[in-house]
Design a protein around this nucleic acid. Structure first.
Lengths: 156, 156
DNA sequence: TAAGATGGACAATCAAGTTGTCTATATAGT
DNA sequence: ACTATATAGACAACTTGATTGTCCATCTTA
């Protein structure tokens, strides 16, 4: 079948799709009062979660060194999205928690992601979009929380 | 419709799909004698093209500064994938061209991309894969050569 | 022919990773 | 209980790949 597109188009389209969504998300987040958030920050705050975490733990979750995780935490702390406090049960640990501003950004992100997905569904049809998601699930690992995104992008 | 996946899954799946292909490509390229190529290098060499280019031109194509483009060229030159020569018609310009090794890596990449695509087609069905590509084309810009990948990833 | 634009080199800076070292604190083994 | 080991976090130096700014040589144009 010669009408197939060349193999290199598929990864580029996947990347462009990812990028289109992320760019739109952050344009909208900026409009909604979060102009300083970088795409990475969303991943990091998701990894921090409602229950909090530590630099070492965060580094393991994200697949980067504890020092790198610490630096990202510092940035997010400076921007007001997380805060640190000493763990009373283990005074070595400093627990990182989302601030109300951090939680707000996650809530807004979730809503914006859903809006974008609805727009894709309107464009492609609900069934086609669901088929795409289902097919992507088949060719990618099942869990999407161990992505080690930062480390991977660093060496791109 | 409550069976829809949350909106944030789609971009992650797109990214994981991209990453799965690129990881596989470079694992195979390493096996075939190109262990030092980074994912970025493929984009850059595609942008260099058969007819050659210059640092300034390459920077414009990739959406980065001419200095950044120059550094990447240096790296690829050191690895033996491109070579530079002075333009006899304009002695300011240095023309960057692919070496035979550079061309070899592009040929192998194209073959590997096709192999990976065939494996996806076997897994998902040819029609489903074509539907995915077609749908992605609908929600992404038509031209995939002005991606400014390096600049974009840098600020991720 | 003088003025301006362009290509490339060099330097300093930045951001986000890395490894290595150090201190303080917890935990486990004898 | 004491000692040895492991862990959390801070600090420093380095790497990579981007940035901006400056500079010189060369080409183009008025």
């Amino acid at each position: 079948m010669s009408s197939d597109s060349p193999g290199f188009e598929l990864p580029l389209r996947l990347l462009m799709g990812f990028r289109a969504i992320i760019d739109e998300l952050h344009a909208e987040l900026a409009r909604q009062g979060h102009p300083d958030l970088r795409p990475m920050h969303g991943f990091v705050m998701q990894a921090v979660g409602q229950s909090g975490t530590t630099a070492v733990e965060l580094g393991r979750t994200l697949g980067v060194s504890k020092q790198a995780a610490g630096k990202t935490i510092e940035t997010l702390e400076r921007l007001g999205y997380v805060e640190r406090s000493v763990d009373p049960y283990d005074t070595r640990r400093k627990i990182v928690r989302l601030t109300p501003r951090g939680i707000d950004s996650l809530i807004r992100s979730a809503r914006i992601f859903d809006d974008i997905r609805n727009r894709w569904a309107a464009r492609l049809g609900k069934d086609r979009l669901r088929a795409m998601e289902s097919d992507l699930r088949q060719v990618t690992p099942p869990d999407f929380f161990r992505l080690d995104i930062p480390g991977w992008f660093g060496t791109l």
